[in-house]
Design a binder for these strands. Sequence first.
DNA 1: CTCGTTTTGTTCTCGCGTTCACAAACTCCT
DNA 2: AGGAGTTTGTGAACGCGAGAACAAAACGAG
Lengths: 204, 204
Amino acid sequence: MARLPVYLRALTTLSEAGTTVCSSEDLAAAAGVNSAKLRKDLSYLGSYGTRGVGYDVDYLRYQIAREMGATRDWPVVIVGIGNLGHALANYSGFRSRGFRVVALLDADGQRHGEVVAGVVVRPFSDLRAIVREHGVAIGVIATPAAAAQDVADQMVDAGISSILNFAPTVLNVGAEIAVSKVDLSKELQVLAYHEQRKATQETA
Amino acid sequence: MARLPVYLRALTTLSEAGTTVCSSEDLAAAAGVNSAKLRKDLSYLGSYGTRGVGYDVDYLRYQIAREMGATRDWPVVIVGIGNLGHALANYSGFRSRGFRVVALLDADGQRHGEVVAGVVVRPFSDLRAIVREHGVAIGVIATPAAAAQDVADQMVDAGISSILNFAPTVLNVGAEIAVSKVDLSKELQVLAYHEQRKATQETA
DNA sequence: CTCGTTTTGTTCTCGCGTTCACAAACTCCT
DNA sequence: AGGAGTTTGTGAACGCGAGAACAAAACGAG
Ligand SMILES: NC(=O)c1ccc[n+]([C@@H]2O[C@H](COP(=O)([O-])OP(=O)(O)OC[C@H]3O[C@@H](n4cnc5c(N)ncnc54)[C@H](O)[C@@H]3O)[C@@H](O)[C@H]2O)c1
Ligand SMILES: NC(=O)c1ccc[n+]([C@@H]2O[C@H](COP(=O)([O-])OP(=O)(O)OC[C@H]3O[C@@H](n4cnc5c(N)ncnc54)[C@H](O)[C@@H]3O)[C@@H](O)[C@H]2O)c1
C-alpha cells in the first residue's frame, strides 16, 4: 500500500481547492493512477464512497490517514547532519505530515551544539537515551556509506524498528526491521539509461 | 532494469576490495537480490560470465556501465537552490557517477551570484541558453510544489527530456519525457504504516 | 582423456498486481 | 414512483516479474 500517501496528498490538494466530493476518476487523475486501481485500493480499507456520487474528500482523507497511522505524531531521529541532514532537518514537509524531528545526531564533535531548524545537534552516543525518552521508532541515516551499517546496528540495538537510509549501501538488519532505501544516484542513472536508449534507437 | 545501478555499485565495492572474479551468488548477496534474478538480468545484456567460474568483476562492470550510458558524462541542471538544492549541488556521489552539474538556477534574485560547490547560481531565465550551450538532457526540480509544474514545462520547452522531481506533485508532461519522482515524505509514511500495523497486530 | 564439480544461461511454473467489465446502489428528474 | 444516468465495489482475465529447477559449458583432478 505504498500508494496511500499519494492519495492522501491528492485529497489534501483537492480539499484545499474547495472540493468536497470527488469521483474515483477525478482522484485517480490527481494521483496519476488508473481509476480501477484506485477503487480497488480504497475497497481494501472499507466502503467509504457512495455509488452514483463519489467520495467525500475530507471523510476519505481522515480514513486513509487513520489507516496509515498519520493521525498520530511519529518522533524521528536523524543521524548524520551534513549536507543532506541539514536539508532534511529543515524540511517542513515532514512536520506537516506528522513526523517530528526529536533529535539530530552526529559523530563529529565540531557539529555538537549547532542548532538546525530549532533542534540542537547532539553526540551520536546519546541515541539510546533519546530513543527511550521519546519512544522513537523511526530513524533516518544520512551519514557516509562507510558508517551506515554501524549506525543501523546501533539504531536497532537502541530499539528503533524502521530505518530510512540515504547512504548507498545495502543494510544487513533483521527481517523484523523495516528498511527503506533512497538512492538519488540510482534515479539519475535510470534517467541516463533512458536517454542512452533513446539515443541509440535514433541512430538505428 | 532499475537494478543495474545497484549491481554496478556492488561491483565497484567488490573491485575496490581486490576481488577480480565473483559468482552470481556473491554479487547477488552484495546487491541484496536473488541470484537467479541477477543472472537473468545480466543475461539480457549478453553472456559476460564463464560457466564454472563466474564473472570477471572489472569486465562486467564496464559492460554494465556501457549499457547504462554511464561511460559518458551527463550534464545536469538543478532548479531551486534552497535547502535541498544546496545538498544536491554539494553531493559528490553525482559527479563520481558521471553526472556533472553545469548550472544552478533559482527564481529568487537574492540567491543569484552565490557560489555553491564551485558553481554560481544564475537566474531561472537562463535555462534555455544553458541547455543549448551544454546539450543538457537531464533536469532536477527542487523548487516548492507550487512552482514545479511551471518549471517542468519550461524545462521541456528548453529541450530537456528527463526530469528528476523532488517536489510532491504529479507532473503533467508529454509521454516522451521521462519523469522520476522522489517523495521523501512518502517513504517515511510507508514506514509509519508498518509501525502502525505492527502495533495493532500486537494488541490483537 | 574422462569424470566429477562448479557455475552460468534459460526454461518453466507460480503468484501477484493491474486492468477490464459489469452488477449493485444511489441520485435526480419527470 | 419509476426510469435514466452515474459511480462504486468486485469478480474474473490478463500479463509480467520472481524464483525454482535444470541443462549446457567450463575447469581440474586423476
Ligand atoms: N547530499 C546529497 O544530496 C545526497 C544525495 C544522495 C545521497 N546522499 C548520501 O547521504 C549521505 C550523506 O551525504 P552528505 O552529503 O550529507 O554527506 P556529509 O559528509 O555532508 O555529511 C555526513 C555527516 O555524517 C556524519 N557522520 C559520519 N560518520 C558518522 C557516524 N558514524 N555516526 C554519526 N554521524 C556520522 C559526519 O560528521 C557528517 O556530518 C551519504 O551517504 C551520501 O552518499 C547525499
Ligand atoms: N529539504 C528537504 O529535505 C526536502 C525533502 C523532500 C522534499 N523536498 C521538496 O523539495 C522542494 C524544495 O525543498 P527545499 O527545502 O529546498 O525548499 P526551499 O524553500 O528551501 O527552496 C526552494 C527554492 O526554490 C526557489 N524557487 C521557487 N520558485 C521557483 C521557480 N519558479 N523557479 C526557480 N526556483 C524557484 C526558491 O527561491 C528557493 O530557493 C520542495 O518541493 C520540498 O517539498 C525537500
